[in-house]
Amino acid sequence: MGGKTVTRADLCEAVYQKVGLSRSESAELVEAVLTEIADCLVTGESVKLSSFGTFTVRSKTERIGRNPKTGEEVPILPRRVLVFKPSNVLKLRINGHDTAGMED
């Protein structure tokens, strides 16, 4: 338990096993789901997936950073960052609690 890395291939396999599409179509659909989420976030819209969590795009203003190696001050330009807020169900699951039938 633990230490493994799950990738697209594992997600495709899960979809293939569960949904009964071909392997190549399962792979396409996994990609389609990720693309749809990513495209939505790029427009600045949040993506809220119940029982899983919420992805939000946050705009950061410019601030002064410092190169930790040289101590030199460098401006950190305004930028957009993606933040993920896990749902309570996800947090509970990760701590070994049973969440069967829970929604949030």
Binding site: M1, T5, L11, V15, K18, V19, L21, V33, I37, L90
Partner: peptide, 27 residues
């Protein structure tokens, strides 16, 4: 709906096992 739920469940299950989930290009 089944596809989306299967993907999310798989991610949750992996994390519950203490595994990492790496989706190149996404996060």
């Amino acid at each position: 709906e089944n596809i989306v739920n299967t993907i999310l469940d798989k991610v949750v299950e992996a994390l519950a096992n203490g595994d990492r989930v790496e989706l190149r290009g996404f996060g």
